[in-house]
Design a protein around this nucleic acid. Sequence first.
RNA 1: UCCUGAGUAGCUCAAUGGCAGAGCAUCCGGCUGUUAACCGGAGGGUUGUAGGUUCGAGUCCUACCUCAGGAGCCA
Length: 436
Amino acid sequence: MSETHISDIASHSGQDITIKGWLYNIRSSGKLMFPEIRDGSGIIQGVVSKKDVDERVWNDFQRLTQESSIIVRGKVREHPKRPGVFELDVADVDIIQIAEPYPITPKEHGIEFLMEHRHLWLRSQRSYAILKVRAEVVRAIHDYLDSNGFVLMETPILTPAACEGTTTLFEVDYFDEKAFLTQSGQLYNEATAAAFGRVYTFGPAFRAEKSKTRRHLTEFWMVEPEIAYMDLDGLMTLSENFLSYIVQRVIEKRAVELESLGRDITKLESVKPPFPRITYDEAAKMLDEGHKKGELENAFEYGSDFGSPDETYVSSQFDRPVMVHRYPAQVKAFYMEPDPEDATKALGVDVLAPEGNGEIIGGGQRMVSHDLLVQRIHEHNLPMDAFEWYVDLRKYGTYPHSGFGMGVERCVRWICGIEHIRETVPFPRMLHSIRP
RNA sequence: UCCUGAGUAGCUCAAUGGCAGAGCAUCCGGCUGUUAACCGGAGGGUUGUAGGUUCGAGUCCUACCUCAGGAGCCA
């Protein structure tokens, strides 16, 4: 009898196998029991027939509770009513533990209760599907970048100062010195890109902002490619190829999981280059018209950054991600290269995911001029000494370069078509929420 | 941080200011193809916390706590 994973069950039809897992649910019908067994790779229905098993096995199954850990032996056979579906004709069981009454029952639960029991909620089929998609997204990110000449560069998580200074950071004690958890690896990547040409960093980022929305985590994962001698147009081309690769890969590998989440896959199939590219001014015009048509409640104030309802409106006008570029310089980060055609604009781009999802990528062309960069650091009242090494990059072979950051959880949320970002990571960290 | 809403059995929810209830889960019993199985029975409560109004408060008032939804900020 070989040990088998439920995901491979179809290739073991007619064979005696062993499954090590947990009891997901059990139904009984007098002298028949139908335990559903979960092993991390899938779920299979067992059939226990009173007349075919030892009395000990029958009695053991009667004692089992939801999520009891068990080792089950039996023969794989096709479901009598469902062609292509396999079930296990159970012969024997070893009980590792009879679980205590399981808090998460097969009925519905509120989100507060589920979040308090996240360590158990992970075993649900919904969490399973989402986190399998997440793992596929992460693999696709690495595969795309690794096979396109990018070198993985880990950047520090403990940092001496803000990358952008504008957002709130988590402070830690670093041997009696103040240090902060990183909010982005970008500035360090501008140094590694000058050494390796094409680099990316992939790691956690931390934001202590008091954001309480379905798009925000305080701890999230971000992938940040940085490319020497690439301009804004090149960056937009990279963005659309990168995102399209990820989405098509998930459709190819995780269609079953997407369907179990009720995702309309046809809405993902259109995610292929080219993505529409519109300027900030064009987006502002769309928002104006949307407001006049009554489709957007609040009027957009030209010159400001897009609010959440604005992003939702613009992104819902397209069937694939839309790239909005050339924002007013004053609403963007200090290191953005000014547009040579219009110095009030910055060569930045945000990629807004469709179906109202909003921003999943933000990036742009980085500033080349030493003197202008120093001026911007002063204008933003940033501590010059913390940025000396960064300014140095503009003294020793300054170079045009571009990069972006993509929030992994936002990407997963969009691909899965789920409402809240908290389900896209095993243990989400949110405002006032750090347990379990 | 601001705005809005909600806290009643382990869970999901009912209860005109007047006896705190149902379904699921748990326990006991029944059923040979069940699919959130079903049928019968049992146990299970400091109504978020602290005050107040009232003959009487789950219900009305005040404060606080927790959670949810939204805004701002951002990936």
